[in-house]
Design a protein around this nucleic acid. Sequence first.
DNA 1: TGTCGTCAATACGCCTCCGTACGGTTGTGA
DNA 2: TCACAACCGTACGGAGGCGTATTGACGACA
Lengths: 193, 193
Amino acid sequence: MNDSAKTDRIRLSAEDWEDAALGLIAEQGVGALAVEALARQLGVTKGSFYWHFRTREALLQAALERWEQYGEREVIDQIKAIADPRERLPELFRRVAHERDPHRVYAALLKALDHPLVVPVMARVSQRRIEFLTEVYREAGMAARPALNQARLTYAAYVGFLQLNFTLGLPRLSHDEFDEYVAHMLATLTPQS
Amino acid sequence: MNDSAKTDRIRLSAEDWEDAALGLIAEQGVGALAVEALARQLGVTKGSFYWHFRTREALLQAALERWEQYGEREVIDQIKAIADPRERLPELFRRVAHERDPHRVYAALLKALDHPLVVPVMARVSQRRIEFLTEVYREAGMAARPALNQARLTYAAYVGFLQLNFTLGLPRLSHDEFDEYVAHMLATLTPQS
DNA sequence: TGTCGTCAATACGCCTCCGTACGGTTGTGA
DNA sequence: TCACAACCGTACGGAGGCGTATTGACGACA
Protein backbone atom coordinates (compact mmCIF):
# COMPACT_ATOMS: atom_id res chain seq x y z
CA MET A 1 0.00 0.00 0.00
CA ASN A 2 1.60 3.21 -1.12
CA ASP A 3 1.39 5.62 1.74
CA SER A 4 -0.38 8.50 0.06
CA ALA A 5 -0.44 10.24 -3.26
CA LYS A 6 2.14 8.19 -5.04
CA THR A 7 0.62 8.13 -8.45
CA ASP A 8 2.22 5.33 -10.36
CA ARG A 9 3.08 7.54 -13.30
CA ILE A 10 6.77 7.35 -13.81
CA ARG A 11 7.34 10.84 -15.17
CA LEU A 12 5.87 14.12 -14.07
CA SER A 13 4.91 17.33 -15.77
CA ALA A 14 4.92 20.90 -14.50
CA GLU A 15 1.17 20.67 -14.08
CA ASP A 16 1.56 17.69 -11.78
CA TRP A 17 3.81 19.77 -9.56
CA GLU A 18 1.38 22.67 -9.59
CA ASP A 19 -1.53 20.46 -8.61
CA ALA A 20 0.46 18.85 -5.85
CA ALA A 21 1.49 22.29 -4.65
CA LEU A 22 -2.13 23.41 -4.47
CA GLY A 23 -2.99 20.29 -2.53
CA LEU A 24 -0.23 20.92 -0.07
CA ILE A 25 -1.25 24.55 0.27
CA ALA A 26 -4.83 23.53 0.97
CA GLU A 27 -3.74 21.12 3.67
CA GLN A 28 -0.88 22.88 5.37
CA GLY A 29 -0.71 26.42 4.07
CA VAL A 30 1.65 28.31 1.84
CA GLY A 31 4.44 28.25 4.39
CA ALA A 32 4.64 24.48 4.16
CA LEU A 33 5.33 24.61 0.46
CA ALA A 34 8.86 23.25 0.35
CA VAL A 35 10.33 21.62 -2.71
CA GLU A 36 11.85 18.64 -0.96
CA ALA A 37 8.66 17.91 0.93
CA LEU A 38 6.69 18.12 -2.29
CA ALA A 39 9.20 15.88 -4.01
CA ARG A 40 8.90 13.28 -1.27
CA GLN A 41 5.14 13.39 -1.56
CA LEU A 42 5.39 12.84 -5.30
CA GLY A 43 7.89 10.05 -4.89
CA VAL A 44 10.79 11.81 -6.59
CA THR A 45 13.65 14.08 -5.56
CA LYS A 46 14.59 17.70 -6.03
CA GLY A 47 16.44 16.85 -9.18
CA SER A 48 13.13 16.56 -10.92
CA PHE A 49 11.73 19.78 -9.54
CA TYR A 50 14.48 22.03 -10.80
CA TRP A 51 14.06 20.71 -14.25
CA HIS A 52 10.47 22.03 -14.37
CA PHE A 53 10.85 25.25 -12.37
CA ARG A 54 13.62 27.73 -11.98
CA THR A 55 12.84 28.37 -8.32
CA ARG A 56 10.40 27.72 -5.52
CA GLU A 57 8.77 31.10 -6.06
CA ALA A 58 8.18 30.18 -9.70
CA LEU A 59 6.22 27.14 -8.57
CA LEU A 60 4.12 29.21 -6.20
CA GLN A 61 3.45 31.71 -8.94
CA ALA A 62 2.44 29.02 -11.40
CA ALA A 63 0.25 27.24 -8.87
CA LEU A 64 -1.52 30.46 -7.97
CA GLU A 65 -2.13 31.29 -11.62
CA ARG A 66 -3.48 27.81 -12.17
CA TRP A 67 -5.81 28.17 -9.21
CA GLU A 68 -6.97 31.59 -10.31
CA GLN A 69 -7.80 30.38 -13.80
CA TYR A 70 -9.27 26.94 -13.35
CA GLY A 71 -10.39 26.71 -9.76
CA GLU A 72 -12.86 29.57 -9.87
CA ARG A 73 -15.01 29.38 -12.91
CA GLU A 74 -16.99 26.40 -11.65
CA VAL A 75 -19.00 27.88 -8.83
CA ILE A 76 -19.83 31.08 -10.65
CA ASP A 77 -20.89 29.24 -13.77
CA GLN A 78 -23.08 26.82 -11.85
CA ILE A 79 -24.78 29.65 -10.02
CA LYS A 80 -25.32 31.57 -13.21
CA ALA A 81 -26.99 28.50 -14.68
CA ILE A 82 -29.82 28.78 -12.17
CA ALA A 83 -32.77 30.24 -14.00
CA ASP A 84 -34.54 32.18 -11.27
CA PRO A 85 -32.30 35.03 -10.07
CA ARG A 86 -33.95 35.01 -6.66
CA GLU A 87 -32.95 31.39 -6.18
CA ARG A 88 -29.28 32.12 -6.79
CA LEU A 89 -28.48 33.70 -3.46
CA PRO A 90 -29.91 30.90 -1.33
CA GLU A 91 -28.14 28.27 -3.39
CA LEU A 92 -24.88 30.18 -3.19
CA PHE A 93 -25.17 30.42 0.57
CA ARG A 94 -25.97 26.76 0.92
CA ARG A 95 -22.93 25.77 -1.10
CA VAL A 96 -20.57 27.92 0.87
CA ALA A 97 -21.96 26.76 4.18
CA HIS A 98 -21.87 23.05 3.52
CA GLU A 99 -19.16 22.35 1.00
CA ARG A 100 -15.80 22.57 2.58
CA ASP A 101 -13.37 21.42 -0.06
CA PRO A 102 -13.70 24.12 -2.72
CA HIS A 103 -12.89 26.77 -0.16
CA ARG A 104 -9.82 25.18 1.34
CA VAL A 105 -7.32 26.79 -0.98
CA TYR A 106 -9.00 30.16 -0.59
CA ALA A 107 -8.95 29.80 3.18
CA ALA A 108 -5.30 28.77 3.12
CA LEU A 109 -4.44 31.75 0.93
CA LEU A 110 -6.28 33.97 3.37
CA LYS A 111 -3.73 32.94 5.96
CA ALA A 112 -0.85 33.82 3.68
CA LEU A 113 -1.68 37.42 2.94
CA ASP A 114 1.75 38.40 4.20
CA HIS A 115 3.31 36.78 1.17
CA PRO A 116 3.72 39.30 -1.65
CA LEU A 117 2.79 36.82 -4.36
CA VAL A 118 -0.62 35.91 -3.03
CA VAL A 119 -1.91 39.41 -2.31
CA PRO A 120 -2.54 40.44 -5.92
CA VAL A 121 -4.09 37.08 -6.73
CA MET A 122 -6.46 37.29 -3.80
CA ALA A 123 -7.26 40.89 -4.63
CA ARG A 124 -8.25 39.96 -8.17
CA VAL A 125 -10.26 36.91 -7.17
CA SER A 126 -12.10 38.71 -4.40
CA GLN A 127 -12.80 41.68 -6.62
CA ARG A 128 -14.24 39.44 -9.29
CA ARG A 129 -16.43 37.60 -6.82
CA ILE A 130 -17.73 40.82 -5.36
CA GLU A 131 -18.60 41.99 -8.85
CA PHE A 132 -20.43 38.74 -9.45
CA LEU A 133 -22.32 39.12 -6.18
CA THR A 134 -23.25 42.67 -7.11
CA GLU A 135 -24.67 41.38 -10.33
CA VAL A 136 -26.72 38.76 -8.52
CA TYR A 137 -28.10 41.35 -6.14
CA ARG A 138 -29.01 43.61 -9.01
CA GLU A 139 -30.83 40.79 -10.74
CA ALA A 140 -32.66 40.18 -7.51
CA GLY A 141 -34.03 43.67 -7.74
CA MET A 142 -31.68 45.98 -5.90
CA ALA A 143 -30.47 49.35 -7.15
CA ALA A 144 -26.86 49.78 -8.22
CA ARG A 145 -25.22 51.34 -5.17
CA PRO A 146 -27.04 49.31 -2.53
CA ALA A 147 -26.31 46.17 -4.52
CA LEU A 148 -22.59 46.97 -4.51
CA ASN A 149 -22.50 47.64 -0.79
CA GLN A 150 -24.58 44.59 -0.09
CA ALA A 151 -22.18 42.52 -2.16
CA ARG A 152 -19.21 43.86 -0.21
CA LEU A 153 -20.92 43.11 3.06
CA THR A 154 -21.95 39.63 2.02
CA TYR A 155 -18.49 38.81 0.80
CA ALA A 156 -16.93 40.10 3.98
CA ALA A 157 -19.31 37.87 5.89
CA TYR A 158 -18.20 34.98 3.71
CA VAL A 159 -14.54 35.57 4.39
CA GLY A 160 -15.13 35.91 8.11
CA PHE A 161 -17.28 32.82 8.03
CA LEU A 162 -14.41 30.83 6.57
CA GLN A 163 -12.03 31.99 9.26
CA LEU A 164 -14.34 31.52 12.20
CA ASN A 165 -16.06 28.30 11.27
CA PHE A 166 -13.56 26.41 9.18
CA THR A 167 -10.07 27.34 10.18
CA LEU A 168 -10.88 28.43 13.71
CA GLY A 169 -13.64 25.90 14.27
CA LEU A 170 -15.10 28.52 16.46
CA PRO A 171 -18.76 28.38 17.30
CA ARG A 172 -18.75 24.63 17.69
CA LEU A 173 -22.32 24.62 16.56
CA SER A 174 -24.58 21.63 16.48
CA HIS A 175 -26.12 20.74 13.17
CA ASP A 176 -29.39 22.49 13.99
CA GLU A 177 -27.68 25.59 15.31
CA PHE A 178 -25.60 25.74 12.20
CA ASP A 179 -28.62 25.54 9.92
CA GLU A 180 -30.34 28.16 11.98
CA TYR A 181 -27.34 30.42 11.59
CA VAL A 182 -27.26 29.96 7.85
CA ALA A 183 -30.97 30.72 7.68
CA HIS A 184 -30.45 33.86 9.70
CA MET A 185 -27.62 34.91 7.43
CA LEU A 186 -29.77 34.33 4.38
CA ALA A 187 -32.64 36.31 5.89
CA THR A 188 -30.64 39.41 6.69
CA LEU A 189 -28.40 39.41 3.61
CA THR A 190 -31.10 38.74 1.07
CA PRO A 191 -33.23 41.55 -0.36
CA GLN A 192 -36.65 41.63 1.21
CA SER A 193 -38.70 39.40 -1.04
CA MET B 1 18.92 60.17 15.59
CA ASN B 2 18.39 56.59 16.60
CA ASP B 3 16.96 54.79 13.64
CA SER B 4 13.82 53.35 15.19
CA ALA B 5 12.82 51.76 18.44
CA LYS B 6 16.13 51.96 20.18
CA THR B 7 14.92 52.93 23.60
CA ASP B 8 17.86 54.25 25.51
CA ARG B 9 17.22 51.98 28.44
CA ILE B 10 20.32 49.97 28.98
CA ARG B 11 18.73 46.81 30.26
CA LEU B 12 15.62 45.04 29.07
CA SER B 13 12.88 43.06 30.78
CA ALA B 14 10.81 40.18 29.51
CA GLU B 15 7.92 42.60 29.00
CA ASP B 16 10.07 44.71 26.70
CA TRP B 17 10.68 41.70 24.54
CA GLU B 18 6.98 40.80 24.51
CA ASP B 19 5.98 44.31 23.47
CA ALA B 20 8.59 44.37 20.75
CA ALA B 21 7.39 40.98 19.58
CA LEU B 22 3.81 42.23 19.32
CA GLY B 23 5.01 45.23 17.37
CA LEU B 24 6.90 43.05 14.96
CA ILE B 25 3.92 40.73 14.60
CA ALA B 26 1.66 43.68 13.84
CA GLU B 27 4.01 44.92 11.15
CA GLN B 28 5.31 41.79 9.51
CA GLY B 29 3.31 38.86 10.82
CA VAL B 30 4.06 35.95 13.09
CA GLY B 31 6.37 34.32 10.61
CA ALA B 32 8.77 37.24 10.83
CA LEU B 33 9.20 36.78 14.55
CA ALA B 34 12.85 35.76 14.73
CA VAL B 35 14.94 36.25 17.82
CA GLU B 36 17.99 37.68 16.10
CA ALA B 37 15.90 40.17 14.14
CA LEU B 38 14.13 41.21 17.32
CA ALA B 39 17.43 41.53 19.12
CA ARG B 40 18.81 43.75 16.38
CA GLN B 41 15.71 45.92 16.57
CA LEU B 42 16.15 46.25 20.33
CA GLY B 43 19.82 46.99 19.99
CA VAL B 44 21.06 43.87 21.78
CA THR B 45 22.02 40.33 20.83
CA LYS B 46 20.63 36.85 21.31
CA GLY B 47 22.54 36.50 24.53
CA SER B 48 19.99 38.76 26.13
CA PHE B 49 17.02 36.96 24.69
CA TYR B 50 17.90 33.54 25.99
CA TRP B 51 18.27 34.88 29.46
CA HIS B 52 14.60 35.98 29.48
CA PHE B 53 13.05 33.14 27.48
CA ARG B 54 13.80 29.49 27.12
CA THR B 55 12.85 29.40 23.47
CA ARG B 56 11.32 31.35 20.62
CA GLU B 57 8.00 29.61 21.14
CA ALA B 58 8.02 30.73 24.76
CA LEU B 59 8.25 34.34 23.60
CA LEU B 60 5.38 33.90 21.18
CA GLN B 61 3.31 32.29 23.90
CA ALA B 62 4.05 35.09 26.35
CA ALA B 63 3.38 37.80 23.77
CA LEU B 64 0.06 36.24 22.84
CA GLU B 65 -0.99 35.97 26.47
CA ARG B 66 -0.02 39.59 27.00
CA TRP B 67 -2.05 40.65 24.00
CA GLU B 68 -5.03 38.58 25.07
CA GLN B 69 -5.04 40.06 28.55
CA TYR B 70 -4.19 43.71 28.10
CA GLY B 71 -4.94 44.51 24.50
CA GLU B 72 -8.61 43.70 24.56
CA ARG B 73 -10.33 45.12 27.56
CA GLU B 74 -10.15 48.69 26.29
CA VAL B 75 -12.61 48.65 23.43
CA ILE B 76 -15.19 46.56 25.22
CA ASP B 77 -15.01 48.70 28.34
CA GLN B 78 -15.35 51.92 26.38
CA ILE B 79 -18.34 50.63 24.51
CA LYS B 80 -19.97 49.40 27.69
CA ALA B 81 -19.52 52.88 29.14
CA ILE B 82 -21.94 54.30 26.58
CA ALA B 83 -25.23 54.88 28.36
CA ASP B 84 -27.75 54.32 25.59
CA PRO B 85 -27.58 50.69 24.41
CA ARG B 86 -28.86 51.65 20.97
CA GLU B 87 -25.90 53.98 20.53
CA ARG B 88 -23.38 51.24 21.19
CA LEU B 89 -23.60 49.47 17.87
CA PRO B 90 -23.05 52.54 15.73
CA GLU B 91 -20.13 53.65 17.84
CA LEU B 92 -18.61 50.18 17.68
CA PHE B 93 -18.90 50.13 13.91
CA ARG B 94 -17.39 53.57 13.58
CA ARG B 95 -14.41 52.59 15.66
CA VAL B 96 -13.73 49.44 13.73
CA ALA B 97 -14.09 51.16 10.40
CA HIS B 98 -11.85 54.12 11.06
CA GLU B 99 -9.27 53.08 13.63
CA ARG B 100 -6.66 50.93 12.12
CA ASP B 101 -4.05 50.44 14.80
CA PRO B 102 -5.94 48.47 17.43
CA HIS B 103 -6.80 45.84 14.85
CA ARG B 104 -3.37 45.29 13.40
CA VAL B 105 -2.33 42.53 15.76
CA TYR B 106 -5.67 40.81 15.34
CA ALA B 107 -5.35 41.04 11.57
CA ALA B 108 -1.81 39.70 11.69
CA LEU B 109 -2.90 36.81 13.89
CA LEU B 110 -5.66 36.08 11.41
CA LYS B 111 -2.96 35.38 8.87
CA ALA B 112 -1.19 32.99 11.22
CA LEU B 113 -4.00 30.58 11.93
CA ASP B 114 -1.81 27.75 10.75
CA HIS B 115 0.37 28.17 13.82
CA PRO B 116 -0.86 25.92 16.65
CA LEU B 117 -0.18 28.51 19.33
CA VAL B 118 -2.34 31.25 17.94
CA VAL B 119 -5.45 29.19 17.17
CA PRO B 120 -6.63 28.76 20.78
CA VAL B 121 -5.91 32.40 21.55
CA MET B 122 -7.89 33.60 18.58
CA ALA B 123 -10.67 31.17 19.39
CA ARG B 124 -11.00 32.54 22.91
CA VAL B 125 -10.79 36.18 21.87
CA SER B 126 -13.28 35.79 19.06
CA GLN B 127 -15.64 33.82 21.26
CA ARG B 128 -15.56 36.50 23.92
CA ARG B 129 -16.17 39.25 21.41
CA ILE B 130 -19.10 37.40 19.91
CA GLU B 131 -20.57 37.00 23.38
CA PHE B 132 -20.13 40.71 23.94
CA LEU B 133 -21.81 41.49 20.66
CA THR B 134 -24.67 39.17 21.56
CA GLU B 135 -25.12 41.08 24.76
CA VAL B 136 -25.21 44.38 22.92
CA TYR B 137 -27.80 43.08 20.50
CA ARG B 138 -29.93 41.82 23.35
CA GLU B 139 -29.76 45.17 25.05
CA ALA B 140 -30.80 46.73 21.80
CA GLY B 141 -33.98 44.74 21.98
CA MET B 142 -33.40 41.45 20.17
CA ALA B 143 -34.45 38.04 21.44
CA ALA B 144 -31.81 35.57 22.58
CA ARG B 145 -31.36 33.33 19.54
CA PRO B 146 -31.58 36.01 16.86
CA ALA B 147 -29.18 38.12 18.87
CA LEU B 148 -26.64 35.30 18.93
CA ASN B 149 -26.90 34.65 15.23
CA GLN B 150 -26.75 38.34 14.49
CA ALA B 151 -23.63 38.62 16.61
CA ARG B 152 -22.00 35.76 14.73
CA LEU B 153 -22.87 37.34 11.42
CA THR B 154 -21.68 40.78 12.45
CA TYR B 155 -18.42 39.41 13.74
CA ALA B 156 -17.86 37.43 10.59
CA ALA B 157 -18.43 40.62 8.64
CA TYR B 158 -15.88 42.32 10.86
CA VAL B 159 -13.26 39.67 10.24
CA GLY B 160 -13.87 39.73 6.51
CA PHE B 161 -13.78 43.51 6.58
CA LEU B 162 -10.31 43.40 8.09
CA GLN B 163 -9.04 41.05 5.44
CA LEU B 164 -10.58 42.79 2.46
CA ASN B 165 -10.07 46.41 3.38
CA PHE B 166 -6.99 46.47 5.53
CA THR B 167 -4.68 43.65 4.60
CA LEU B 168 -5.92 43.26 1.04
CA GLY B 169 -6.62 46.93 0.46
CA LEU B 170 -9.32 45.68 -1.76
CA PRO B 171 -12.19 47.94 -2.65
CA ARG B 172 -9.95 50.98 -3.05
CA LEU B 173 -12.87 53.08 -1.99
CA SER B 174 -12.94 56.82 -1.91
CA HIS B 175 -13.72 58.45 1.38
CA ASP B 176 -17.36 58.95 0.50
CA GLU B 177 -17.80 55.45 -0.83
CA PHE B 178 -16.27 54.10 2.32
CA ASP B 179 -18.63 56.04 4.55
CA GLU B 180 -21.52 54.93 2.43
CA TYR B 181 -20.44 51.34 2.85
CA VAL B 182 -20.18 51.69 6.61
CA ALA B 183 -23.62 53.26 6.70
CA HIS B 184 -25.02 50.41 4.67
CA MET B 185 -23.41 47.91 6.97
CA LEU B 186 -24.84 49.65 9.97
CA ALA B 187 -28.28 49.74 8.43
CA THR B 188 -28.47 46.06 7.62
CA LEU B 189 -26.75 44.75 10.74
CA THR B 190 -28.58 46.90 13.25
CA PRO B 191 -31.96 45.88 14.63
CA GLN B 192 -34.77 47.81 12.99
CA SER B 193 -35.18 50.84 15.20
C1' DT C 1 20.48 0.72 -33.40
C1' DG C 2 22.39 5.10 -32.19
C1' DT C 3 21.30 9.73 -30.78
C1' DC C 4 18.93 13.32 -28.65
C1' DG C 5 15.68 15.36 -25.57
C1' DT C 6 13.23 14.63 -21.27
C1' DC C 7 12.95 13.57 -16.60
C1' DA C 8 15.25 12.01 -12.35
C1' DA C 9 19.08 10.72 -8.59
C1' DT C 10 22.99 12.05 -6.04
C1' DA C 11 25.98 14.97 -3.95
C1' DC C 12 27.40 19.28 -2.68
C1' DG C 13 27.72 24.34 -1.08
C1' DC C 14 25.49 27.95 1.06
C1' DC C 15 22.55 30.59 3.90
C1' DT C 16 19.38 31.37 7.72
C1' DC C 17 17.91 30.62 12.04
C1' DC C 18 17.59 28.13 16.47
C1' DG C 19 19.70 26.98 20.66
C1' DT C 20 24.02 26.36 23.78
C1' DA C 21 28.26 27.48 26.19
C1' DC C 22 30.72 30.51 28.42
C1' DG C 23 32.89 34.60 29.51
C1' DG C 24 32.27 39.67 30.42
C1' DT C 25 29.95 43.82 32.52
C1' DT C 26 27.09 46.38 35.63
C1' DG C 27 24.31 47.33 39.58
C1' DT C 28 23.35 46.50 44.42
C1' DG C 29 23.50 45.14 49.08
C1' DA C 30 26.31 43.31 52.93
C1' DT D 1 35.06 46.81 48.62
C1' DC D 2 33.57 42.23 47.79
C1' DA D 3 30.17 38.95 46.18
C1' DC D 4 26.49 37.69 43.65
C1' DA D 5 22.74 38.12 40.60
C1' DA D 6 20.97 40.19 36.45
C1' DC D 7 21.92 41.13 31.93
C1' DC D 8 24.50 40.97 27.58
C1' DG D 9 28.29 39.66 23.88
C1' DT D 10 30.64 36.25 21.17
C1' DA D 11 31.39 32.07 19.22
C1' DC D 12 29.93 27.75 17.88
C1' DG D 13 27.19 23.47 16.54
C1' DG D 14 23.49 21.70 14.06
C1' DA D 15 19.21 21.37 11.45
C1' DG D 16 16.62 22.56 7.52
C1' DG D 17 15.84 24.45 3.16
C1' DC D 18 17.26 26.47 -1.43
C1' DG D 19 19.74 26.11 -5.56
C1' DT D 20 23.66 23.94 -8.64
C1' DA D 21 26.34 20.52 -10.95
C1' DT D 22 26.88 16.30 -12.73
C1' DT D 23 25.61 11.97 -14.14
C1' DG D 24 22.19 8.39 -15.28
C1' DA D 25 17.91 6.19 -17.18
C1' DC D 26 14.55 5.95 -20.66
C1' DG D 27 11.62 6.70 -24.60
C1' DA D 28 11.06 8.66 -29.35
C1' DC D 29 12.62 8.79 -33.71
C1' DA D 30 15.54 8.85 -37.56
